[in-house]
Nucleic acid binder design. Structure first.
Lengths: 112, 112
DNA sequence: CAAAGATACATAAGAATATTATGTATTTAT
DNA sequence: ATAAATACATAATATTCTTATGTATCTTTG
């Protein structure tokens, strides 16, 4: 588990990436998938995720569809066409950013 | 230039890494160095940096020394012993985190 | 079968961190 | 002389996350 500050600002990108792979997912499913894919290293809290999903919906990046499972409710999210384009851009920018940071943090000690 | 949200939570780590390389730096110098090392991709704002440096000083992670350059003032920061240990841990954790994120975001589209 | 844990949503108070704007003052370049 | 760069600082605001709380259903386990 990473200290919480590291996750800041990455949540939207993670969500967009997952949605661009699997077409439709519901919130709780996203938390499980991220835990699984990262071997429990990244754990998305629901208090962060649900407001983020609502924000993405408001921005027209995802659309939501409520489905009944027995007496329980699931809210499936899908990328809109606008969202698909946006997702690619954001993910690519983030990968670029990661590479930049890796370069910056891998620099060896210098004399001086 | 990356969209601003990406930088969130990384500032302290960048500062600690630079100080662990070069022993002592002043604030403005840090902004220039990061710009240079990242080919202008990461630009630290002074409004973010100075409060961060003050916080690190309060936590006993860095110590500060004011130097006069002509009639102007520079405030040089150095890692304390505690800070050196802390810097290594944080930088390593961050590199680990970056690798995890890269894995997560490089996953190829899946059928389903 | 009762209790605990997992599933599934939601929101609100508070903390942390950054942006943007503003301010002061000196030094260097045009 | 004026603009830009150097060098510090802080305040108001915005963003984003944590922690806590709430509701309700379904599944596992002693």
């Amino acid at each position: 588990m990473y200290s919480s500050e590291l996750i800041k600002g990455t949540l939207k990108t993670i969500v967009l990436k997952l949605l661009s792979e699997t077409k439709q997912m519901y919130g709780y499913e996203i938390t499980l998938k991220v835990k699984e894919l990262t071997s429990n290293k990244i754990q998305i809290t629901e208090g962060a995720l649900y407001p983020t999903l609502h924000a993405l919906e408001k921005e027209g990046i995802v659309s939501a569809e409520v489905i009944n499972i027995g007496k329980r409710v699931r809210k499936y999210y899908t990328l809109t066409p606008k969202g698909k384009k946006n997702a690619n851009e954001k993910v690519n920018e983030f990968i670029d950013y990661i590479n930049t940071m890796k370069f910056l943090l891998d620099i060896k000690p210098q004399v001086g």
